[in-house]
């Protein structure tokens, strides 16, 4: 039985520098609640991020944290999970970091299926660098770097994740943090890579996709007769935008096998668990033997 913890356990004393009203506040709150609801202690979780407004999030939590290079949190999170599969590893980064700079890592993570929870703070713009259009900006979106409107089609993370073989694909809205916390909790419990794409208004630079804009469009898949194991249905839902935007679990493969559970080198225990041997017997030859077991 899971013992719920107090989300305040995850509170940090760091000053938060997000703009007032930023959707990242809701994501931070939802993540704390999800971890607390699952009874995960701060020392049992690792939050990895990249560069950007949303990537400051691990700094605002009392939790193991790793702020990496731009676009690189997914491979580093995968490495951390391989080294210590007992950790609950969560990645939080923005749409630019996830789908632009780290786009290849996103695709590879979908098909590799490491047991990670990937929360993408998708505000459809680069906020930290003052408002350039991002991979998820809609075609025609006017920004400082697209004064005549973005020329490219918007990147669709849900359909790409589905095509690349992801086993858990969901979408949340920062205006509904309680609902988001539930999706994050499901993602953490999923065996494999779990994408939670969070529609998160940038109140300073994105004057189009506001809370009101989303509020008028979002609806819950849970309220409809929707089967998240239906891949074709998920494909259709992944392409809904503009008029109606679905929230919830679009696609889930039950009983998926995580990447790290298939790595033969880990069958004898994780590298972290084997560190005890090294601590007890720190001779160079012991270290060499340990290295041999992983080559």
């Amino acid at each position: 039985m899971v013992t719920r913890l107090d989300p305040k356990l995850f509170d940090a004393t760091t000053d938060i520098t997000w703009c007032a009203g930023c959707g990242d506040f809701a994501i931070l709150k939802a993540l704390k609640l999800a971890l607390a609801d699952l009874g995960i202690e701060p020392y049992q979780a690792l939050v990895v991020s990249g560069i950007g407004c949303g990537s400051k999030l691990p700094d605002y939590m009392n939790v193991n944290a790793y702020l990496t290079n731009h676009g690189r949190p997914l491979p580093i999170a995968t490495a951390a999970k391989l080294a210590n599969p007992d950790l609950h590893v969560i990645v939080t980064n923005g749409d630019g970091d996830s789908y632009g700079i780290g786009g290849n890592h996103f695709v590879q993570s979908c098909r590799r299926n490491p047991n990670l929870t990937h929360i993408v703070e998708n505000n459809q713009i680069y906020g930290l660098t003052k408002g350039q259009y991002s991979p998820t900006s809609d075609k025609g979106f006017v920004t400082t770097t697209s004064p005549d409107g973005a020329i490219e089609l918007a990147f669709n993370p849900l359909s790409v994740a589905l095509g690349a073989g992801a086993t858990f694909i969901s979408r949340a809205f920062a205006g509904e943090p309680k609902h988001m916390a539930g999706l994050i909790a499901q993602g953490i419990q999923h065996q494999g890579y779990a994408l939670i794409d969070v529609l998160q208004p940038c109140v300073t630079f994105n004057r189009t996709n506001t809370y009101d804009w989303y509020r008028k469009r979002v609806y819950h898949l849970e309220d409809e007769d929707y089967d998240p194991s239906d891949r074709k249905a998920a494909w259709e839902k992944a392409h809904e935008w503009e008029e109606r935007i679905p929230l919830g679990v679009l696609y889930r493969v039950e009983g998926a096998t995580a990447y790290e559970d298939q790595v033969k080198a880990l069958e004898g225990g994780s590298p972290v668990s084997r560190l005890d041997d090294l601590v007890k017997d720190p001779r160079p030859q012991q270290y060499e033997r340990l290295k041999e077991r992983f080559t």
């Binding site: 009203g21 939802a30 609640l33 920062a174 205006g175 509904e176 943090p177 309680k178 004057r207 809370y211």
Partner: peptide
């Protein structure tokens, strides 16, 4: 109402 709706979210609507 979402029970986690707080002052940050409230300001989010107003800042728009």
């Amino acid at each position: 109402p979402d029970p986690l709706f707080d002052s940050h979210l409230f300001l989010g609507w107003v800042v728009s």
